[in-house]
Design a protein around this nucleic acid. Structure first.
Lengths: 236, 236
DNA sequence: GAGTCAATTATTTTCGAGATTTTTCGTATT
DNA sequence: AATACGAAAAATCTCGAAAATAATTGACTC
């Protein structure tokens, strides 16, 4: 008789692919933070978390520790955990740093990418385009899927970069920027053709025009910050 | 009656400044990995760890999860934890990535640093020089202190960089490189005047010669890789 | 009223045992 | 000999309760 529902063998694993409760809890809490369900600054009390996510204290603690590593959660010894704060300054800093890393990774990826990489890229772009169409038709329940495919596209762009460390750094920064991107979407920041931006980047990448692709990617990364800045501080 | 010795209030806190057993265990295990006491690839079994570090499984699990965030430990679901592997290729990748980040951070730091920063820098350099002298006299028990002051010096160099994210990325990469640096020291890789390299960097930084300082720092970062490559692959 | 201090309450931190999964090893079968 | 199978052993993963710490309350003093 099983006492608790396991992630792998349980009847309703909350997160597909999760092989342990820690991983499932981690993925769920991360999603809730990125999505704003758990707002910035929120104190993460264990009783609340245990009720909400249905796992024990040690399991939660480990999941939260992983999130601290992602800089999505902060912790103070003996004082518990909080959802990491956000700010426009932080987003500006994040964007500049991400630009430095991602552009360099893209440069190397274009240099080293082979035919298989090109194929992956075309595929990822196509899948992203499809969900963009549906999103444009007004199906906001596809936001999670959009985020997933958008992430896939950007990760595929730099996948051929041979530097594992550069990609590791990129992963951390990209995940962070996902938080702000969702806020940007929620704030209905418009006046932007994301599809066209992606299209321009991939075309330059396939044409092996390194400088153009990097310039376009940099502009693409900067665009969300630009628009969000204007929205939040309209006077500037 | 206390059942176990606490980190803060216990009689013999293993790690100074640790406010919880998780933090103490984390710091101790990290030190042992950086120092090579726990060699690359080692399977980290809980029974062994409990015996060695004297804390419970959940506590260890959390400490190890933090180390996974530092990329000093790897984990595979349901298959436990291992000390992260090292390789010359990884070190080369790490060095290139660190160079990209640290040089940019230094550039900004020199640009934004004020008198107080200059003072901190001179102080950190002095403290480092002192321990370097003692180390040269053949007191290998000062290796931990050398590492600490070396870290302080490099962190102070970029402390005035206003980008928190750039500094965060740097912290991860620098800690990683500490592993290889210690190996390099253990392998008695010599033919190098580290003190002179540091001196050149700080002089250029204080003179606000951004380009020179960045060039020297880049060469300084690359030097360990160069020497270690030659030592491990003498044929090249 | 402001400030201390002790008692109470709330919260975090830790452990050890039990549940689950993986690995090992002996046996049988081809 | 090689493979497949299954029971036993070993290891990981999880929970819930107890211990330790922090925060709150309220009585008391100045």
């Amino acid at each position: 008789m099983e006492k608790y529902v396991t992630a792998a063998g349980g009847r309703q694993p909350k997160v597909v692919g999760a092989r342990s409760l820690v991983e499932a809890a981690y993925a769920t809490i991360r999603h809730d933070i990125l999505d704003g369900v758990l707002p910035p600054g929120l104190k993460l009390r264990f009783e609340m978390l245990r009720e909400r996510y249905g796992v024990g204290a040690s399991t939660l603690r480990e999941a939260l520790t992983r999130l601290v590593g992602d800089a999505l959660v902060t912790s103070e010894e003996q004082r518990g955990f909080r959802v990491a704060e956000i700010s426009l300054d932080d987003f500006a800093d994040l964007t500049r740093t991400r630009k430095l890393i991602e552009v360099e990774a893209l440069r190397q990826s274009i240099l080293f990418g082979d035919d298989a990489w090109e194929g992956d890229l075309v595929g990822a772009f196509h899948r992203l385009s499809k969900v963009e169409e549906k999103l444009a038709e007004g199906l906001p329940e596809l936001r999670d899927e959009f985020e997933e495919r958008n992430r896939d596209f950007h990760f595929t762009l730099i996948a051929a970069c041979p530097s594992r460390w550069l990609k590791h750094m990129h992963g951390i920064l990209f995940q962070q920027s996902e938080r702000y991107r969702r806020i940007s979407l929620a704030a209905r920041v418009e006046g932007r053709d994301v599809h066209a931006e992606h299209k321009a980047v991939i075309e330059a990448a396939l044409a092996r025009d390194v400088d153009l692709a990097c310039r376009l990617e940099a502009e693409h990364i900067e665009k969300t910050l630009e628009l969000l800045s204007r929205t939040l501080v309209p006077s500037s």
